[in-house]
């Protein structure tokens, strides 16, 4: 069960009209290590997670990722909403525009449509939690590349926040993994 809260998780500010940057930011809307992949991955893994700490962590981080997906869509929208067609022509956003107009769409910056092949759920908590920790680090790395190519101060502030969240999530998944491992060891020896 979910309920929509009529607010963003972070106050998104965008200072420029920049369709090229929008086309790059879309990597985190529908790319392999983007927020959609993260949300669907964690929420899918919940049914076979053995510990209560793990069930709660997957539920809440998965939910937060959907709020991040909304933040990314908002950045993309704010970067293009006032762009006249002349500002779009000849930029990497043009190929997106001829299909989707100014709507965000879940594909990577290179234009590959989002696919469930980006995620996994193995019904094996050790495998799943290692995948989740790797996913957080890959998302952090992507945010660092995006910050490097962006010269919009507002966008960079928001990307910095999202990068921080990946670090916190990595930490929580690590703790979850440790709890699961302790549980497995306890069952083996007593």
């Amino acid at each position: 069960m979910w309920i929509y809260e009529k607010k963003l998780q972070y106050p998104v500010r965008v200072d420029t009209c920049n369709p090229t940057l929008a086309a790059m930011i879309i990597e985190q809307f529908g790319g392999p290590d983007g927020e959609l992949s993260a949300g669907i991955r964690y929420l899918t893994q919940r049914w076979t997670m053995p510990t209560n700490e793990g069930k709660a962590t997957l539920t809440d981080i998965g939910t937060e990722e959907l709020a991040h997906w909304e933040i990314i869509g908002t950045i993309v929208w704010k970067l293009v909403k006032d762009a006249p067609k002349e500002a779009i022509q000849g930029t990497p956003f043009e190929t997106h525009y001829v299909n989707h107009g100014k709507s965000p769409f879940p594909h990577s910056a290179a234009g590959e449509a989002w696919t469930a092949a980006y995620i996994q759920s193995k019904a094996d908590p050790i495998a799943d939690l290692h995948e989740d920790m790797a996913a957080e680090e890959k998302a952090r790395a992507t945010y660092e590349y995006l910050i490097r190519v962006s010269d919009d101060p507002g966008v960079n502030e928001t990307l910095g926040f999202l990068r921080q969240r990946e670090i916190v999530h990595f930490q929580r998944f690590g703790e979850t993994l440790q709890i699961v491992q302790e549980e497995i060891n306890r069952k083996k020896y007593y």
Partner: peptide, 23 residues
């Protein structure tokens, strides 16, 4: 006022995540 709500909301999202592994 929405911004203030968002700040406080962020605090409890963060404490909740922490409490999930430190109940």
């Amino acid at each position: 006022s929405l911004r203030e709500i968002m700040e406080v909301d962020f605090v409890i999202k963060e404490t909740a995540l922490y409490l999930n592994t430190h109940p």
